[in-house]
Simulated assay, not measured.
Amino acid sequence: MTETQEISGLDILPQALRCPLLIATNDDKPLASISPTNGSDFELEQLYQALDCQTIEVVSIGETDMIFIIDEEGAINGDPQVNKLATSLYRFFDSDAQAAKSILFGDAILCHTTKLL
């Protein structure tokens, strides 16, 4: 279930702690809340459908309990689209040298680690 809503940049992490966010590659598309269909944690099929993919990758965000869930093959499938917002957030909240060079492709789900078991 997705629900569109306006969220400012500084409110993204606190919002994602309360409810996972789908961050689209399309800059014109607002952030959307996404909830696990079972009410507690995401099942693979829901993630595949939300991200329009067949495999997922979990990207830890520094020392936080937050993660990005992305299409594992997003950089090599069809016409890869850089997710500017997700990439910027990843680089901002993760001071690791690897994060500084990383680019996230495709739509991404930002959520707390407890939403993925």
Rank of each mutant, 00 (worst) to 15 (best):
Q5V: 07
T4C: 06
L22C: 00
T25Y: 07
N26Q: 11
N26M: 03
P20A: 08
T4D: 07
P20G: 06
K29D: 09
D28C: 05
E6Q: 14
R18G: 06
L22R: 09
N26T: 02
G9P: 00
G9I: 10
L17E: 09
R18V: 13
P20I: 01
L22A: 00
M1W: 13
A24H: 12
L17C: 10
C19F: 01
S8N: 14
G9M: 10
L13E: 07
L22E: 04
A24Y: 06
C19S: 10
T25V: 10
D11C: 06
L22T: 01
I12G: 03
S8P: 04
I7T: 02
R18P: 00
I23C: 08
D11E: 13
E6V: 10
L13Q: 05
P20Y: 01
G9H: 13
T2Q: 14
I7Q: 01
L17R: 09
P14V: 02
L10T: 08
Q15L: 08
E3K: 14
L13M: 13
E6N: 11
I7D: 00
L13V: 06
C19E: 10
L21E: 02
D28A: 13
P30K: 05
A16N: 02
I12T: 04
E3L: 13
I23W: 01
P20W: 01
A24I: 01
T4P: 05
T25A: 08
I23L: 11
D11R: 12
A16E: 00
T25K: 04
L21F: 06
G9N: 11
Q5T: 11
L10G: 12
Q5L: 13
K29E: 13
E3P: 00
M1E: 11
L10W: 12
E6H: 10
K29V: 07
Q5C: 08
L13F: 15
A16M: 05
P14W: 00
R18A: 11
Q15Y: 07
P30Q: 04
Q5A: 08
P14M: 01
L13Y: 15
L13P: 15
Q15N: 06
I7K: 02
P30N: 08
P20K: 07
P30E: 01
D11I: 01
D11G: 07
L21N: 02
G9S: 10
T4K: 12
S8K: 15
Q5E: 12
L17Q: 08
T2P: 09
L13K: 04
R18S: 08
L21S: 03
T2W: 15
R18H: 07
G9E: 08
